[in-house]
Amino acid sequence: MNSQNFAGKTALVTGSSIGIGRAAAISLAKRGASVVVNYRSQPEKAAEVVETIEKSGGKAIAVQGDVSDLAAVQNLVEQAVAKFGSLDVAVSNAAYSDRQRYFEADLEGFRRTIDVTMWGAFHLLHAATQQMLEQGNGGAITLVSSPHAFIPAPKAMAYNMSKAAIDHMAKTAAIEVAEFGIRVNICQPGWTDTPGERKFASEETLQSSGAKIPLGRLGTPEEMGEAIAYLCDPENSYMTGATLLVDGGISLPWWGNRGSAAPG
């Protein structure tokens, strides 16, 4: 990938103070994009991402905003344009998840998962598209989904529902805005070694479970950031409505896992 393919372009990445969003913001900045680093509740982490980008010669600002609020997302877009002059790339990465069986779930957490993960993606898609249409130069939007979109992982119904909705959302949007030169694609990261995973599992569990994935480990945020940048890259201008699965083989049939025999 050309290191300056995003020169002169502005990218907005939601939920980019940590994890996959952080890696995506840095990957885009390394390729020349000016980046809006969005965070909800960790300003110090967002400031660290901005500092990392600036130390590498890039440009970035941090902007607070809860993506479940459409007005807050519209403000993110406005801040991007006010600071850097345009919005050319948008990455919906922010997500939330509680893990409980649906019939025992705290419905406040259940709704919060959908509000952030599904509606947050729609809010960015909506606001970014409107700005790109106004500019008239096309653009690239990537929605970060998950194998949860098609694997019914237990204790994650709200998250599963949200990611499945994101996939249809992106594909429908891709059809509706193709004539305007706006590309909408999907990235499906598999099990990735991020701070958020510590909410559900210990380090020991993550390592032992990662060893059972066909490729023998969890993915890294940097690998997912590279995949997101790939989908947004102008060189890949014939890709829209596409799904890029980056999961180390975790979604392969169970007999594909290490140590398992094929049936039959």
Rank of each mutant, 00 (worst) to 15 (best):
I151F: 00
I175P: 03
S34I: 10
T10A: 07
I228K: 07
L143W: 08
E197F: 07
C187E: 10
I53V: 14
A11V: 02
A227P: 13
I18T: 00
I114F: 12
F200R: 03
S97F: 00
P221D: 15
H123K: 08
T194W: 01
M132L: 01
G256R: 05
R31Y: 06
Q207I: 11
K199D: 14
A149H: 09
L143C: 11
A127I: 01
P263T: 10
A121M: 03
M1L: 14
G196D: 08
Q4G: 08
A128W: 05
A11H: 08
I186R: 06
A229V: 08
F6Y: 15
E222G: 05
Q135T: 03
K9T: 15
M239P: 02
E54C: 05
Q207R: 11
A201S: 09
G196N: 04
S208M: 11
R112C: 02
E104S: 04
I18M: 00
A33I: 05
A90N: 12
S202F: 01
M157N: 08
I151L: 06
N137G: 09
G190Y: 07
S27L: 06
R217L: 06
V116F: 14
I250Y: 14
A201Y: 11
G32P: 00
L124V: 05
G138T: 11
R31N: 12
G181Y: 01
D115P: 02
D167C: 06
G85Q: 13
G181L: 02
E134D: 06
S162G: 02
G85T: 15
N257G: 15
I141Y: 13
F150T: 09
G19M: 07
A11N: 04
H126R: 11
A140D: 07
K163Y: 03
I175T: 13
N2I: 10
R40H: 13
A201I: 00
I53M: 15
I61K: 13
G136C: 09
Q100I: 03
F150N: 13
H123C: 08
T243G: 04
L87V: 10
A211C: 05
G85I: 15
